[in-house]
Design a binder for these strands. Structure first.
Lengths: 250, 250
DNA sequence: ACCATAGTATGGTCTGACCATATTCCCTCA
DNA sequence: TGAGGGAATATGGTCAGACCATACTATGGT
């Protein structure tokens, strides 16, 4: 006969997580709500405080709860929703394990950033943050300042797409690539080319030109990570990839 | 004056994680290698076993370690790399917290699946898994069987893109949408339309037609999740979205 | 040679204690 | 009456030590 199920031993902390998750689904527990204290939770769930704590570590790792010590309204465990933090940790570790290559991460970022830019252009979203970051980048005098506003610029693109999930992915991908980004800036020597890319991206988004925005994003990332990305193209263009246009999809 | 740093209290288990991560980076620890036992690790790091265990829970949540009880070569903590599992948990919880909407998840899946299909088409990758899944879907007689091979089909598309990160994202997104996918199949009543989509996707990828593959994927997801996705388009086409072509990027 | 049994190392769980922190309460003093 | 300051208290963070179930390993008897 078939259909054997492997014996699944449920660890105590997994049960704690499941029950908390059920409360979120059934009781409408949401961001900002507080969980009982660890001791109280342990007593109610008939497990030890250790098991409750291991469950809290898991939920904290997933960006779902945050714990504060002390006493008062702010103390204890509080439901939050910070998927980007969790994603950053995840990517950083798996990148370190060499189970993800830099090319894969860069490709994924190119995908998301092109998508975000195209959506931002098509949706005529609020672009004030985008414009502000661009102006501050223009006015920046140090490399640190430039990188700071550069990050704000790319985050603004992601947020203008109106999708919090892809925004979180973008944030964490960029976070994982931070060390390589610094190297890229140093390798290029100056930021004139990057700024030209930024202005081109900005112009296209403001003009509602989704295709142009995506192309500008691709050119920008190809400049920052030369030779890394492998966009699918059916016809080759100039060797610099400057106006590299995707076959159809980014 | 400025430049104040917030007092950062480092919890013991965070230090354990940091040291393990450093060993991964410096000592070239990689997938398949084993970590010392919890007691031994606690002694070496001068922390309690509880702290070591909390660190292990975090790393396990991130899909980086796996623990087996017992004794022998298989026992103890082992380095793995399963980002998709971690991503699934992350998405499921944040979806439950209503901090991510179904539309955002569906949009993200559309983005990734279009990208994957286009890459798969452009790269002429090994498509035997794709073809096999399609044939099994054609031959399936029950809804359960259909869904099973449908999953295999979409996973094969992701894997054919050659990017493990986007594949992991696809897997977890699809996992999060499983319950809605079942509802969609029931709503449609039959699978003829879905199968037509699948064959169209398959034909395009095999033919190396990246644009056609992406368009077919979009049509497929629009059929499964009507009214959810909002692809950026500058010109409208037929009302059925059948040959919906993105303005430029998916 | 084989098999049953004892030994042992592992993760999983629990208990109970103590510490650092931060709020709340209340008493003292001006 | 108000303000200041310390005590009480509740929180998470950490630790030590014990016990359990599990699963391999070694041993010894057949």
């Amino acid at each position: 006969m078939s259909g054997w199920q492997p014996v699944r031993r449920t660890r105590a902390f997994e049960d704690v997580i499941a029950q908390i998750e059920r409360r979120i689904a059934d009781d409408g527990l949401t961001v900002g709500d507080r969980l009982p204290g660890e001791r109280q939770l342990a007593e109610q769930l008939r497990v030890s405080r250790s098991s409750v704590r291991e469950a809290m570590r898991v939920l904290e790792t997933l960006g779902v709860v945050s714990s504060q010590v002390g006493r008062g309204a702010d103390a204890g465990a509080c439901l939050i929703s910070r998927p980007a933090d969790a994603l950053s940790d995840l990517l950083r570790l798996h990148l370190g394990l060499s189970n993800l290559s830099l090319a894969e991460v860069v490709d994924a970022r190119l995908m998301i950033e092109q998508w975000s830019a195209a959506h931002a252009a098509a949706q005529r979203a609020d672009l004030s943050a985008l414009t502000a970051a661009l102006e501050r980048m223009d006015a920046s005098t140090s490399a640190e300042e430039f990188v700071e506003h550069d990050t704000a610029f790319h985050v603004a693109i992601a947020e203008a797409s109106g999708n919090r999930l892809t925004t979180a992915m973008m944030l964490s991908l960029r976070d994982s690539l931070r060390r390589y980004a610094v190297g890229a800036v140093e390798r290029l020597g100056d930021t004139a080319g990057l700024m030209a890319d930024h202005h081109r991206i900005h112009r296209a988004i403001v003009a509602g030109d989704a295709a142009g925005a995506a192309a500008a994003v691709e050119a920008h990332l190809l400049r920052a990570y030369p030779g890394i990305s492998r966009p699918p193209r059916t016809e080759e263009e100039g060797p610099d990839g400057q106006h590299g246009r995707l076959d159809r999809v980014g």
